[in-house]
Amino acid sequence: MSTLRLDNVGFTYQKGMPDEKTAVSGVSLTFEEGDFVGIIGHTGSGKSTLIQMLNGLLKPTTGSVYIDGDDIWDDKSKLREKRFKVGLVLQYPEYQLFEETVRKDIAFGPKNLGLSDEEIDSRVREAAGFLRIPEKLLDRSPFDLSGGEKRRAAIAGVLAMRPEVLVLDEPTAGLDPRGRRDILDVIKNYHEAEKKTVILVSHSMDDVARYANKVLVMNNGTLLYYDSVGEVFKHALELRETGLNIPTVTGILLTLRERGLDVDTDIYTPAAAAQTITDAFRGISG
């Protein structure tokens, strides 16, 4: 069991300086093993600061982050080992590709773990498999790949570390619709196959509704909601007030209900929305 727990976590940039700025404050929550959590919040809400504390890239200025019950900052000699349990994919991760071949790039992390060549090779294959990177691309330069392929190669490098928790900061930013679907589908397949925790930062409510089972909403550096997708999107009006939107079809269902059509509103995908609207009309005519 690998759980990630935050206890009263806060972070202040430039602490003690005249221009200090608190980005996150008082966040307490637990990411349970196997959850697929979508994190939403507008720019400046503290999302990125929060996830950088999950793997020790930033040290909280208040509170603690626990992985499997251990405070990751407790024993500095073990920090590295604990950090490896949480794999963080930053925004535009392809900017960090640097090796001569895709294979070497994916192998970079495992190699630093001091693993045997065989083990490294098997991890590279496994990670490339999850990301659907064909064998023939592995010996190409990462710079010859398309934008979507580069991004998948960069994510594979994180997966090759076999993290217990995978955190991705807007992995679909800047991609075209097919590239977006490809990335989200491979993440979903990885999650289903490995049953490991996935934390996905996204600006798209439609994507979060489609892929995650829990939603975490950050607002002005604090935790606004952390609950199942259904519970969080019940707060449609509050979400709109904080400048976030709700899935398009949920918005349509809320309007229909307001205007007297008997539809369910805890629905987030077009297919399910079509069903409840169709049922409502059968109810009227039948």
Partner: peptide, 20 residues
């Protein structure tokens, strides 16, 4: 063409498929 339709169009087309 590697694209998609807006969610509202997707919903509309599903509803038409259901006979609305």
């Amino acid at each position: 063409l590697g694209l998609e339709v807006p969610p509202v169009t997707e919903l509309t087309l599903d509803l038409i498929g259901n006979g609305l």
